[in-house]
Amino acid sequence: MDKLGIEPTLLGAQVINFLVILIVLQKLLYKPILTMLEKRKREIAEGVELTAKMREAEEKLKLSHEKALGKAREDALAIIEEAKKQAKETEKELVVEAHQQAEAIIARAKAEAEETKLAAKAAISREAVELAVVMAKRVLASVMGAKEQHALIAKRVKDLESWGVREEKKSA
C-alpha cells in the first residue's frame, strides 16, 4: 500500500469529495437541466399539436368562408333577378295605367265637348225663339190689331215651344 501511495484518510476524503460533487451536480446541473429539457419537450409537443389543430380550424374556416361567399353570391344574383322581374312588372303596370288614364282623360274631354255642344244648341234655339217673337210682333203690329196679334203670337209661340221641346228631346 505504501508503494502505491494509498492512504486511508485520503481515500476517505476522496470518497467524500466525490459524494459532495455528486450531490452538488445533481442539485445544480442534472435536475434543472433535465427538468428544463422535459419541460421544453412537453411544450414543443403541445405547440406542434396546437399548430395542427389551428391548421385544421383554419381549413374549416376557409371552407365555411367559401361556402358563405358562394351563398352570398347566389343570393345577390337571385335578388338582382328578382329586382329585374319586379321592375319589368312595374313597368308593364305603369304602362297599362297610363293607357287607362289617357283613355279616361280622352273620354272626359269628349263628354265635356258634347255637353258644351248641347248647351250651345239649347242657347241658340232659345235665342232664335225670342228673335222670332220680336220679329213677329213687329210684323203683326203693322198688319193686325192688338187682339188678333196676341192670339196669333200665342199660337206661334206654342208651336215654336213644342218644336223646341221636340228638338231638345231629339238631341238628348
Binding site: I21, V24, L25, P32, E43
Partner: peptide, 18 residues
C-alpha cells in the same frame, strides 16, 4: 476540479430560460 465543475454548473444553470 471540484471547484471548476461547480463553477461551470452554476454558470450554465444560473439563468435557465425556455
Amino acid at each position: 476540479v471540484m471547484v471548476l465543475l461547480i463553477v461551470l454548473s452554476v454558470m450554465a444553470t444560473r439563468k435557465m430560460t425556455m
